[in-house]
Amino acid sequence: MSPRLFARLKTTLFLLCLVPLLSLVYGLLGDSLGANPIEALSRGLGDWTLRFLLITLLVTPLRRFTGLNWLPRLRRMLGLYTFFYALLHFMSYVWLDQFFDWAAIGKDIVKRPFITVGFASFLLLIPLAATSTNAMIKRLGGQRWRALHRAIYLIAGLAVLHYWWMVKKDITQPAIYAAVLALLLGLRVYWAVRRGGR
């Protein structure tokens, strides 16, 4: 792929990744998010965090299946968008849900397992986002950087658990995310085992 075409593709993807946020903001301003817009916004941001996380994890399998070797060059942006939506999701909780009631937030994090794991997965994302620059990769060294960024598998597991433990009774939605994650991680395990066996 020519550099120009790739740059265009990257710009398009960058704008595309903003569409979920814009549609939520549009819904909020246009009063089309239903009777409980704050909840809809907060859940929508959470949904998109998970989706971006899974899309990020899809890059490697997709490259292996399609042979499109430029795909991983889009992964950093997808990962940073995951963090961006996670940050907005977290902010919606701190601001719109708890209104900066730090005592209540602290209690929630300690007492509510679904918030504990959600908060943990958000915290773990921070070092990953912070080390996403080329300079940081160089400073850490490829091997250490890769080891650190393997935390994404744990983060993904915690994020799905966060959703699973949040729902009242109908676990259909979190189960779908869990199944997709299991598939994406399962492929990696399968490849690792095959590589090791050879």
Binding site: N36, I38, E39, D97, F99, A104, K107, D108, R112, F114
Partner: peptide, 19 residues
């Protein structure tokens, strides 16, 4: 008395911004 998974101390009245 909280729900085991979330607090019951506050509520969001539908249509209101603050809990």
């Amino acid at each position: 008395v909280d729900h085991p998974r979330w607090s019951q101390a506050k509520e969001r009245r539908i249509g209101e911004f603050f809990k």
